[in-house]
């Protein structure tokens, strides 16, 4: 599914064609603000804004988007349930009791903090999705090397390393099958499980190391790291489209914050308290 979202063909949206660095640049200030706010309205506004931009400019199907974002909403909601109990006692002694069950009391302030925190986490994740869903790791690393001066030896080694992740997963599956065939009992006690994991680890790491070694040799054989500079066949530059997007995103971010402040919906920023 990720592959489909990452599709970088002509049919893909504006976001996919932008330089990854500019996308990162665009969302950074908004994320900074989100880390500081304490009210629930600002994160809510950025959730809507982020999701809208991602779906429209990234030309994603809303259904696919929801499938990815759904679990994040669930994660945020869990804060709502946990926070009132954690926070209630210390910060909220003076606030009203919202509901109570025996010795447990849910106070209003706790609820408020829970909502705000949950939404903040959600807003931060939604903004990251804008980047993650529309960017290939490889393009991002290339752009980092070309535009932000990341040493290419590190950047390209990381590109090579990212190719291993799916292989590790299929390895685990095969090893599990291989052990089942040996008659390893598939009992479910924690001890058995831990033991099984430790047996998987050996062939998994032996193979990962061997693979890394082979790939490193293959890279050396193609003169990787021979010179301090390399040329770039696929170039990443900051184009006018990138600048327009960054300015557009920043303007709207500032607009959202100013509007909320004007409506007196913006609470205190944590750093000022």
């Amino acid at each position: 599914m990720r592959a489909k979202l990452n599709d970088q063909t002509d049919e893909a949206g504006v976001l996919q064609r932008l330089n990854p660095v500019s996308k990162l640049l665009a969302i950074t200030p908004a994320m900074g603000v989100l880390m500081l706010v304490t009210d629930p309205y600002t994160p809510l506004a950025f959730v809507a804004f982020g999701a809208l931009v991602t779906i429209v400019l990234g030309r994603l199907s809303p259904v696919d988007y929801l499938r990815v974002a759904g679990p994040l909403v669930a994660l945020a909601a869990s804060f709502l349930f946990v926070y009132p109990f954690v926070v209630g006692s210390s910060a909220g002694t003076s606030s009203d009791v919202f509901a109570s069950l025996g010795p447990l009391a849910v106070r209003e302030s706790g609820l408020r903090v829970g909502v705000a925190t949950g939404l903040r986490i959600l807003a931060l994740s939604i903004l990251s999705l804008l980047f993650v869903l529309t960017t290939e790791t490889e393009s991002f690393l290339r752009a980092l090397v070309q535009n932000l001066g990341l040493p290419y030896r590190i950047g390209y080694s990381a590109i090579a390393a990212f190719r291993f992740a799916p292989k590790m997963r299929s390895d685990v599956e095969t090893i599990r099958a291989a052990h089942t065939v040996r008659g390893t009992p598939d009992t479910d006690s924690l001890r058995d499980r831990l033991h099984r994991m430790s047996r998987y680890a050996i062939p998994l790491f032996v193979n990962a190391i061997r693979r890394a070694e082979r790939t490193a040799l293959a890279m050396d054989a193609r003169a990787f790291g021979a010179y301090d500079e390399r040329t770039h066949y696929r170039t990443y530059s900051i184009t006018s489209a990138d600048i327009t997007f960054v300015v557009f995103f920043w303007t709207l971010s500032v607009g959202i914050v100013l509007t909320l402040w004007y409506l007196e919906a913006l609470g205190t920023l944590t750093i000022l308290r």
Binding site: E136, E138, Y156, I159, A160, R163, R211, R214, T215, A218, M219, R222, A223, F224, G225, A226, Y227, R230, T231, H232, Y233, R234
Partner: peptide, 18 residues
């Protein structure tokens, strides 16, 4: 195990860029 990038042309380019 001898490929670094993910597409055909960037892979051929890899050695030449080096």
């Amino acid at each position: 195990l001898q490929f670094v990038t993910s597409t055909v042309e960037t892979e051929i380019a890899f050695g030449l860029e080096n």
